Amino acid sequence: MRLAELSERSGLPAATIKYYLREQLLSPGRRITATQAEYGDDHLRRLRLVRALIQVGKMPVATARQVLAAVEDESLDQNARLGAAVWALPQGQKPVEDDPATAVARREVELLMRRLDWKECLDAGEEAPAWGTLVVAVSALVRLGYPCDADDLAPYARAAAQLAVTDLDLVEGFHTPLEQVEAAVALTVLYEPVLLSLRRLAEAEESNRRFGTGD
């Protein structure tokens, strides 16, 4: 397909596609004349991923380039590739050092991981970006005095474990290793707001069941 058709099928302006080409977020098309190139379904799929990262995930272009590099790293096995790609996604703040609440949060998070027997996470520790993000979140709960020890966190972790099964079932539905890694990244970005929204809707239903007057 030519650039105009790629633009139409992807829903992105031609100028945006040219920008992604310049920023090396999209590989060049096959040159057919001095001024024209031809693009394929791989370009269309990549544009959907780039759009998910930048427009939905609000990711800076430089970070998106790093994520895409991890996606394409064929030197890694599939598990490492999936991990590298998802770990490259933007995370929250890093834990505050020399802070009593952070120390408590670190202890409870590690205890939680040991109770769950999440060996991969324990091996990585705070090198896993999500571990540090979790410590920051739990430390905020500690400071405000809300329940957040390993027992309190366990139901959330078990729900997350089941969601992980659902996530990987979706990823395995894609045929090639590259498509699977791209899907893992895109679905992580796209489904996080879905999960947040569903949780709030579910809370509204449960609140009405417990506290509603029936009016």
Rank of each mutant, 00 (worst) to 15 (best):
G214E: 09
A202I: 00
Y191W: 14
G212C: 06
D167R: 07
C148V: 02
F211E: 01
S197E: 10
D149M: 03
L170S: 00
Y191E: 02
V171N: 03
P177Y: 11
H175R: 11
G212P: 10
L196N: 07
A159V: 11
G214H: 13
T166D: 07
D151Y: 03
S197I: 00
A154Y: 10
P155W: 07
H175D: 12
D169F: 13
V165T: 14
R199V: 02
L170Y: 15
F211A: 00
A159Q: 08
A150T: 01
A204L: 09
S207F: 09
S207A: 06
A150Y: 03
A160Q: 11
L163D: 08
V189D: 06
P177N: 05
D167K: 02
P155D: 04
L195R: 15
L163V: 04
G212H: 11
D152F: 07
D149T: 03
R199G: 01
A157Q: 11
A204S: 13
E192T: 15
L201M: 12
A154C: 00
A183L: 09
R210W: 05
L195Q: 07
P193R: 06
A160C: 07
V189R: 00
E172M: 09
T213Y: 11
V181G: 05
T188G: 03
L187P: 05
E205H: 13
V181Y: 10
A204M: 04
P155S: 01
Y191T: 04
L168E: 08
R209E: 09
E179P: 06
A204R: 11
E172K: 08
R200K: 14
A154I: 01
A204E: 13
A150F: 01
L163E: 11
E172D: 13
L170R: 11
A183C: 14
A150E: 06
R209D: 09
D149N: 07
V181T: 11
L163P: 03
D169H: 13
R199C: 01
A154N: 01
L187H: 13
A184S: 13
L168V: 05
C148A: 10
G173S: 08
R209W: 09
T166H: 13
S207Q: 10
T213K: 09
C148G: 02
L198D: 04
F174G: 00
R210E: 05
D169W: 14
P155G: 02
A183E: 05
R210Y: 06
R209V: 03
D149H: 05
T166I: 07
H175Q: 09
G173P: 09
S197W: 15
L168W: 15
E172N: 11
T176F: 13
A160W: 15
A186W: 12
V181Q: 02
A184W: 08
A154D: 08
D151F: 02
Q180W: 11
R199A: 04
P147Y: 04
D151L: 03
L196P: 00
Y156F: 15
A183K: 07
V171P: 04
Y156D: 01
L178Y: 04
L201Y: 14
A204K: 07
P147L: 04
P155M: 04
A202N: 03
G212W: 13
Y156N: 02
D167A: 09
V165A: 08
A204W: 14
N208P: 00
P155E: 01
A183Y: 12
L198C: 02
L168I: 10
L168F: 15
L190M: 12
P147I: 00
P193S: 08
T188M: 00
V181F: 10
A202L: 02
S197M: 08
A202S: 10
A186V: 08
V194S: 00
G214D: 09
